[in-house]
Lab assay of single mutants.
Amino acid sequence: KYFGTAKARYDFCARDRSELSLKEGDIIKILNKKGQQGWWRGEIYGRVGWFPANYVEEDYS
């Protein structure tokens, strides 16, 4: 189950295995919004990890 999707506004390079690298334009499935302050958990291309919420724009459609 996921909470919708978000589109990456910027590139983000994961610093460890718990984080999710993003490329601008990627569409991420949002799995959890209750991580550390400002971090969401998501899935993209079969990978799961945490990413900074301010790097994405949530899709409300």
Results as ranks from 00 to 15, higher is better:
K1M: 08
Y2D: 14
F3N: 10
G4V: 09
G4T: 12
G4C: 08
G4I: 09
T5K: 06
T5S: 10
A6D: 03
A6L: 01
A6E: 01
K7Q: 12
A8M: 03
A8P: 04
R9S: 07
D11M: 07
D11W: 03
F12W: 12
F12K: 00
F12Y: 15
F12I: 05
C13M: 11
C13W: 12
C13H: 11
C13R: 14
C13S: 14
C13F: 14
A14Y: 07
A14Q: 05
R15L: 05
R15C: 06
D16A: 09
D16L: 06
D16W: 04
R17P: 14
S18F: 14
S18L: 07
S18P: 02
S18T: 13
E19H: 11
E19Y: 03
L20W: 01
L20F: 01
L20N: 03
S21D: 15
L22F: 15
K23N: 04
K23M: 10
G25T: 00
G25C: 01
D26C: 03
D26Q: 08
I27C: 10
K29H: 12
K29R: 14
K29Q: 08
I30K: 00
L31V: 08
L31A: 02
L31S: 04
N32P: 02
N32Y: 11
K33W: 03
K33L: 01
K33G: 03
K34V: 12
K34E: 15
K34R: 14
K34W: 08
K34Y: 10
G35V: 06
G35T: 11
Q36R: 14
Q37G: 14
G38N: 08
W39C: 08
W39K: 10
W39H: 05
W40G: 03
W40V: 04
W40M: 06
R41N: 07
R41K: 14
R41D: 00
R41G: 03
R41E: 14
G42M: 03
G42L: 02
G42T: 02
I44D: 05
Y45Q: 15
Y45P: 10
Y45F: 15
Y45A: 15
Y45K: 15
Y45L: 14
G46M: 01
R47Q: 13
V48T: 15
V48F: 10
V48S: 13
G49D: 00
G49V: 01
W50E: 04
W50T: 04
W50Q: 05
W50A: 04
F51Y: 00
F51R: 02
F51Q: 03
A53K: 09
A53V: 08
N54Q: 10
V56E: 05
V56N: 02
E57P: 00
E57D: 10
E57Y: 12
E58W: 07
E58D: 06
E58S: 07
D59R: 08
D59Y: 09
D59H: 12
S61A: 12
